[in-house]
């Protein structure tokens, strides 16, 4: 006797369609652990990005801390007061706290010859300061001085008090300098204050290296960011091939450099 396909299918669906079987006790435990594991994976998946972000922030913080500009502003902040004398020249005397004078802020003023006696003290002071600057210049110690724009090489034998129209900022540690009015000083004309250094040395032209390897490229990039002499990290080519090694490390407190 033939059974139709529909009845045949119905035989199975009626008896197996609603079949129920009790699963083992450990099945739920496995499902729960998989669900928990997935949550952990999601959390872990987010961690690398957080680690990378934290690393970048840390590097930037370290970089900002150690890679500071080498030439910082000098703490000395003299108070300038310029007065015009009747000859049209201007004299500026800076504050010099450690200079052994009674006045904390010295203002040198050039007076007309008529008022010479009254301004004697202050003029002498300015001469002293100017003389010190010359003496300092001879010892090649850096200083900041007011110089004229057109330096005159003539040396005047006797400096008149009324001609003491030069002032300078002298380093604190210069002591025991006896200065008299007869000291030779450079005459100053049209003294517009400018900053100068006694021992100006021309910076050596930067060595130009061709980029042969990744190390050279990194050196260039680091040099753009780190202006210090000893860079944060330096690479040197080891051989003719593209390999390179770290030859210098400067973490501020911790420095290491391989001698070439």
């Amino acid at each position: 006797m033939k059974v139709s396909d529909k009845d045949f299918d119905q035989l199975f669906s009626s008896k197996l369609g609603d079949m129920e079987l009790e699963p083992s006790a450990n099945v739920w435990g496995n499902i729960a652990s998989k669900l928990d594991g997935k949550k952990d994976e999601e959390v872990k998946a987010g961690l690398p990005f957080m680690k990378i972000a934290a690393g970048i922030v840390l590097l930037m913080a370290v970089g900002l801390f150690f890679i500071r500009p080498e030439h910082q502003t000098i703490a000395l902040r003299p108070v300038f007061k310029a007065t015009e004398n009747n000859q049209g020249s201007r004299v500026i005397a800076p504050v010099q706290p450690s200079v052994p004078y009674t006045e904390s802020a010295v203002i040198a003023e050039t007076e007309a010859p008529v008022k010479h006696q009254q301004s004697k003290t202050t003029v002498e002071h300015s001469v002293n300061v100017a003389a010190k600057s010359i003496d300092t210049a001879q010892t090649s110690t850096p200083y900041i001085a007011a110089v004229n724009q057109k330096p005159d090489n003539r040396i005047i034998e006797q400096v008149q008090t009324t001609q003491a129209q030069k002032s300078s900022l002298v380093p604190d540690n210069i002591n025991g300098i006896s200065v008299t009015k007869s000291m030779n000083v450079l005459p100053v004309k049209n003294t517009n204050p400018v900053m100068a250094s006694a021992n100006i040395t021309k910076p050596e032209p930067a060595k130009k290296h061709r980029i042969h390897s990744l190390g050279d490229l990194l050196n260039v990039v680091i040099a753009k960011v780190d202006k210090r002499e000893d860079k944060l990290i330096e690479f040197t080519n080891t051989s003719d091939d593209d390999s390179f090694t770290v030859t210098g490390l400067n973490l501020g407190l911790l420095k290491a450099k391989k001698e070439k």
């Binding site: 197996l16 129920e20 009790e22 099945v27």
Partner: peptide
Amino acid sequence: LASKMLGVCMR
């Protein structure tokens, strides 16, 4: 639903 679904999977 576990017992019903295990019946499905058994087939």
